[in-house]
């Protein structure tokens, strides 16, 4: 057994785990944060994407022991003080999600992209999310959602596809 101590979304988690415990299972089962999902066995789908020290990472292909001491961010940590992250807002406004299963991983990748590149082209967005599979949306609205978030983060005016609530 090995001791793993991490921060997830700013809160400390500590547990004695088997070295083989996958990070995604640490997050879901030990920390109880079930927004991070598992979609494949082969590091292909990205449904399990979280940020490890700011880096988007497939948590099904990391051992929990590998990130001991790390600072993790999951989908549950995106909203701050009741305010949705611009990426969350973009996905909502541009209908960037359908079944919602790939969404948390997709959004974490998007958050990291916009940290590095505040004004990506559509092609750069597509390239950045090419390790995250979505089976529902056909990606068009995901690209728009990320562009919406980028514009919002740059302080530009934004309008999404959706009507505002009545």
């Amino acid at each position: 057994m090995a001791q793993v101590k991490v921060n997830i979304n700013g809160a400390p988690y500590q547990a004695e785990v088997e070295p083989r415990l996958l990070l995604v299972h640490f997050i879901r089962e030990v920390a109880g944060l079930t927004g991070t999902h598992v979609g494949c066995d082969s590091t292909s789908c990205g449904a399990c994407t979280v940020l490890v020290d700011g880096v988007p990472s497939k948590s099904c292909t990391l051992l929990a022991v590998q990130v001991d001491g790390g600072d993790l961010q999951t989908v549950e940590g995106l909203e701050r003080d009741g305010q949705l992250h611009p990426v969350q807002e973009g996905f909502w406004e541009e209908h960037g999600l359908q079944c919602g299963f790939c969404t948390p991983g997709m959004m974490m990748t998007a958050v990291a992209l916009l940290e590095r590149n505040s004004n990506p082209s559509d092609d750069e967005v597509r390239r950045a999310i090419s390790g995250n599979l979505c089976r529902c949306t056909g990606y068009v609205n995901i690209v728009k959602a990320i562009q919406y978030a980028g514009a919002k983060m740059r302080g530009e005016p934004v309008t999404g596809a959706a009507e505002s609530a009545a």
């Binding site: 879901r28 999951t74 995106l78 909502w92 969404t103």
Partner: peptide, 22 residues
């Protein structure tokens, strides 16, 4: 084009998928 009513939970990682049940 009403904004989806189901999205707030999915966007926050609070969907209720079968594997989330304990």
């Amino acid at each position: 084009s009403v904004k989806r009513k189901e999205d707030p939970r999915f966007l926050r990682g609070k969907g209720n998928y079968v594997d989330d049940l304990k």
